[in-house]
Nucleic acid binder design. Structure first.
Length: 553
RNA sequence: UGGGUUAUGGUGUAAUGGUAACACAACAGAUUUUGAUUCUGUCUUUCUAGGUUCGAAUCCUAGUAACCCAACCA
């Protein structure tokens, strides 16, 4: 667009194809199997595919690769559509591989007639054995030489339901000694007497991925079929089938999938976390799913930005989680309204402030004037953060401690005169005196303090439950650690604070709004929140230079 | 030990034979009524060995390492 940003290798291919006149316009597709929820890795693919369509004036289809009825559900279809839309993309057409079943069947018949496919009676084990290994060539199936007529009849019988699951398969007739294992007479169709979420019981044979994906691309006239690296070995077969069927030559290109530290990115593993109860669902705020991140408070903008920053290449990668957090904070810093909330409250009493008096103080809502201001009520008894008080000040401590002065944000400077403890020795009250001439915005004192802390008035504050999240795994890459990835689950990834206190203005909080609780991070209302009981999720903390300083000491 | 893919700072990504750069992270400082933001600065890089060339991350040769492929999954 504006300044020159270097192209990724797929954009280079597209530009070359457009420049050479190979295509007038491009058509891409995002092709999920509806067998789980979308995660941040899919977001990379979504941004790539839809981004290409947008950038080059082409179009992008949403196509469900629903060729395995035993794993797929309508629930997943619905969630995928919601997630793609939420990310901010619109598809040209909503399509399903299952809509092409009849056409695919005819393609198979065509292949049989060309003597390029045959029905095999061998069991899965026998087929695997005859397939050989990467270093040992395979051997032909005894059924490889069946006549066209016989194959046609057998395949029709398969479709008609004359056989049980696994009794027969349709295979391509290619080369049992091919160095590429995928070319050793790959399976094209298998029998599954299973109910399909869209075609119901109309079919009992289903095409395999290799006989559905490329053909669907071709039917749709997809120009650039973009997938991840592990499909590279499939490309030879992808091209072979298109060539033999003599159909639109879609081309497959592969990029490296996204990996991120401290999480897992496979549907199988995510499904396990859900079904085994390690998280509360696909949209658990700790999950790397789009729905989980949305619930956690991520913005679509921040995810799109992240996908833009990580780039597209063919090299295996492991992205620092901190880059995602950076993109998140960058966006939230611009958009989140500033409010005050005390997560771990301890009482602060201003001994020289009139008992029962309330002042309506003005506080800014955001980083600049455009955000406006709001009123926060102030009184002589406040809740402040327990961690903002020390009985004995540490080095470089800017906050409350006996003898120390701090500013209460948007209010007055107070000096700590003392504190009391309960029977267990826990500090239960901090005593301060305030300086009337230091009122925020009208400060005539000339006094400046190093620290400013947030607070809420005890009488006016609202109770709220706050949920804090840590990374889901303790290991940077749980999938490559020894043993099961679940051994590396972080048991402390969720902290529930049942009795936090937030300022009054939050009574009007909505699910869509994001807030910065001053000094404590970005928060959003959870879907489980009710008018009687507000529930906030902490999306991400603020950067914290103090904790580093404190840890060093 | 068959085939395929990839190697650039701690992590990503650029540089397409001509000064190795950008972002994140880390570190230091300035500003700050959020120890946030913002601003300034520092840090660290071409897998190895040869070769071609005035000049190589880029081209050639030989190695090395990592990842993928032998599901009636996608």
């Amino acid at each position: 667009m504006s300044e020159e940003k270097s192209l990724n290798f797929i954009e280079e291919i597209v530009e070359a194809d457009l420049a050479s006149g190979k295509y007038q316009t491009i058509l891409t597709r995002f092709p999920p199997e509806p067998n789980g929820y979308l995660h941040i890795g899919h977001a990379k693919s979504i941004c790539l595919n839809f981004g290409l369509g947008l950038k080059y004036g082409g179009k992008t289809n949403l196509r469900f690769d629903d060729t395995n009825p035993t794993k797929e559900e309508v629930e997943y279809v619905d969630s995928i559509k919601e997630d793609v839309q939420w990310l901010g993309f619109s598809w040209a057409n909503e399509l399903y591989a299952s809509d092409y079943f009849e056409q695919l069947y005819l393609f198979a018949v065509d292949l049989i007639k060309k003597e390029l496919a045959y029905v095999d009676d061998l069991s899965a084990e026998e087929i695997a054995t005859l397939k050989g290994t990467p270093t040992v060539p395979g051997m032909d199936s005894p059924h490889r030489t069946r006549t066209v007529e016989e194959n046609l009849q057998l395949f029709a019988d398969m479709r008609a339901g004359k056989y049980t699951d696994g009794e027969k398969v349709l295979r391509a007739k290619i080369d049992m000694s091919a160095p590429n294992m995928h070319m050793r007479d790959p399976l094209l169709y298998r029998i599954k007497h299973a109910h399909h979420h869209r075609t119901g019981d109309a079919w009992c044979i289903y095409p395999m991925y290799d006989f559905a994906h490329g053909q669907s691309d071709s039917i749709e006239n997809i120009t650039h079929s973009i997938c991840t690296l592990e499909f590279i070995p499939h490309r030879e077969l992808y091209d072979w089938l298109i060539e033999k069927l003599d159909i639109f030559p879609s081309k497959q290109y592969e990029f490296a999938r996204l990996n991120m530290t401290y999480t897992v990115m496979s549907k199988r593993k995510l499904l396990q976390l859900v079904t085994e109860g390690h998280v509360q669902g696909w949209d658990d705020p700790r999950m790397p799913t789009i729905s989980g991140m949305r619930r956690r408070g991520f913005t679509a903008e921040s995810i799109r930005n992240f996908c833009d920053k990580i780039g597209v290449a063919k090299r295996e990668n492991m992205i620092d989680f901190s880059l995602l957090e950076f993109c998140l904070r960058e966006d939230l810093n611009k958009s989140a309204l500033r409010v005050m909330g005390v997560l771990d409250p301890v009482k602060l009493v201003i001994t020289n402030y009139p008992e029962g008096q309330t002042e309506e103080l003005v506080s800014e809502n955001g980083p600049d004037e455009a955000y406006g201001t709001r009123i926060v009520p102030f009184s002589n008894t406040l809740w402040v953060e327990r961690e903002d008080f020390m009985e004995v000040a540490a080095k470089k401590w800017f906050r409350l401690a006996p003898g120390a002065a701090v500013r209460l944000k948007s209010a007055y400077i107070v000096r700590c005169d003392g504190f009391t403890k309960d029977a267990e020795g826990i500090v239960n009250e901090i005593h301060c005196s305030y300086l009337p001439e230091t009122k925020s915005g009208h400060d005539t004192s000339g006094i400046s303090v190093k620290g400013t802390i947030h607070w809420v008035s005890v009488e006016h504050a609202l109770p709220a439950e706050v949920r804090l999240y840590e990374r889901l795994f303790k290991a940077e890459n749980p999938s490559t650690e020894e043993g099961d990835f679940k051994e590396y689950i972080n048991e402390d990834s969720l902290t529930i604070i049942p009795d936090a206190r937030v300022e009054r203005s939050l009574a009007n909080a909505t699910i869509e709004s994001r807030y910065q609780f001053l000094r404590k991070g970005y928060f959003c209302l959870d879907k489980e929140s009710t008018p009687e009981k507000m529930v906030f999720n902490r999306t991400v903390t603020l950067k914290d230079a103090w904790s580093k300083t404190a840890n060093k000491a």
